[in-house]
Every structure is written in structure tokens, then in C-alpha cells.
Simulated scan of single mutants.
Amino acid sequence: MNIWKSFFYSLFSPTMIGQFRRQKIGRTILYVFLLVLITNIPAAISISSFAVTAGERLQHVLSEDIPDYEVESGTLAAESEQTPYTTHIDNTLVILDDSGQITPNDLAGEANVTALLEDRAFMVADGTVEQLEYGAFSFTKAELQEATGSFLELLPAFIALILILLYLFASGMKFIGVFAISAIGLLLKKIYPARLQYGHIWVMSAYIATLPSVIGTFLDFIGRNGDASFWIYWLIAIVMSILVFRTLPIPKRRQ
């Protein structure tokens, strides 16, 4: 059976998962990497889309006719008669405020914002909030425009690096999860005395992780990734483990 069919059957068939116990460890490790790749596609798309959208929006905002400004020793100074300066460019609210009148809390509920406040840069892109304190940075409007243009040229490489690091981290966490499920399997072995070695249990645990991982990804996608998703993941993993062990053949006792 190819690895894609294994993924398909792992979503609903405890019987097939039980039969997978005879697979080699190497194939199962490859399956775990594939599972991580599949379940992280929505996150990768979201991160890439946000980075590209935010970068293009920032470049567009900076290229428009807004007052000159500079950040010196972590504080904004804007050359504008209107304080704070606000305008709408396309569907984005643009703010320059060196007076401290506006705070990030005042922008709650805004869908798209690019704001240079007194002590930090603040951006909201489609409801996703990012902010960065100036700290020791010093720059002018022209320098920021130039730096933004250079950054956008390198943005695909940065996104690729971030996604690779995210994938490696997620893979590490998934293997930890598989080992945790295998610990549940060792406890179930005492209840369901099937003829199993630890390698068999670990292989089954990798496939048992499929359904809770996919459901967890779906909950993240619809924005329901709170504390409940953690408990849902492990509830599904425990129930699936029990169902799998119930399908395993129990050796007959000798007369």
C-alpha cells in the first residue's frame, strides 16, 4: 500500500491502522514527515500571504504623499501640521502620530492599518496584528522606503527559510506526540494482550496521530485553536488508540 492510501485509511479505519503495525520503521518515519507537511499547508499559506500582503502594503503606503518623518533614538518625529496625521490609502488606514495620543488599543477592530506611533510601528493586515518597538533604531522616510524595497526583493528567500524552520519545529513536535501516543499504547497493551513489540506500537501510534492532527489543522484554519483543541486532539488520540487495540488479534491460550 502506498503512503497516500495509508494516510487515507488512517483517517477512519482502526482495523487498517492495526495492520500497519508490520510496516518498517523507516517507512513510518517518512509517513510522519508527510503528515507534518500536509497539516502545515494552511499555516504556510497564511504566513506567506500575510508577509507578501504586509510588505506590498507597506511599500505602497510609503510611496504615497505622506509627510516626511524620522525616528531618532526610538522616538518618531513627523513633519506634519496635523497631529496625529491620518489618511486612507486604498482600504488601509495610515497614521503618523508623534504625540502619543494614539495607542494600539485605539486601533482595535480595524481591519487594515499601517501606523507609525510615537514609540513603535503598528500594522494590521486583514485582522492580523503585528507591532515592533523602534528601540535603538534610527531612520528617515526615504531610508525606510529604500530598506523596504530591498527587503521585498529578498522576501521569497525569507519566507522559504521561515517555512523550513516551521516545518522542522513542527516535525519535532509531531515525533514527540507520536512517542506520547505510544506510551498510551503501552498501557493499553496490558488491557489488550496482543502480541506486540514496542516497534509495532510506535508504528501504529504514527498512524493514530493522523486523524487528531487533521482535525487540529481544521480547527486552526477556522480560528478555533484555543485550549479546547489540545484536549480534542488527545481525546481523539486516546479513543482511536483504544479502537485500534480492540481490532488486534489476541493470541489463543494453550490448553
Rank of each mutant, 00 (worst) to 15 (best):
V36W: 02
K141Y: 14
R27L: 12
S182A: 15
T140Y: 00
A136Q: 11
I215N: 04
G55E: 05
Y207V: 12
E56I: 01
G26D: 05
T210P: 02
H200G: 07
M1I: 02
L152D: 14
F139R: 09
L155R: 13
S6P: 07
T86Y: 06
Y134T: 00
V36N: 02
A44K: 09
A170L: 07
T247A: 01
G149I: 03
K24R: 15
F245Y: 06
I89H: 09
N2R: 02
V32L: 11
N40R: 11
F221S: 11
P42W: 06
A121S: 10
M204F: 06
L188R: 04
L116C: 08
D90C: 08
G100D: 00
E79H: 05
F169V: 15
I89E: 01
V52T: 00
N40F: 08
G216F: 06
I17K: 01
S182W: 03
Y31M: 03
L196H: 14
S48E: 00
H200S: 07
K252V: 13
V32S: 04
F7N: 03
Q255C: 11
T75I: 12
A180L: 12
L243P: 03
L96M: 10
L37H: 11
T39C: 11
I201S: 05
A157K: 09
T28W: 06
R246D: 13
A183R: 01
F179N: 08
F137M: 07
G216I: 00
Y134G: 06
F33T: 01
L168A: 14
S241E: 06
N2P: 11
K24M: 13
N225F: 12
M173W: 10
T148Y: 07
H88Q: 14
P156A: 04
D65E: 14
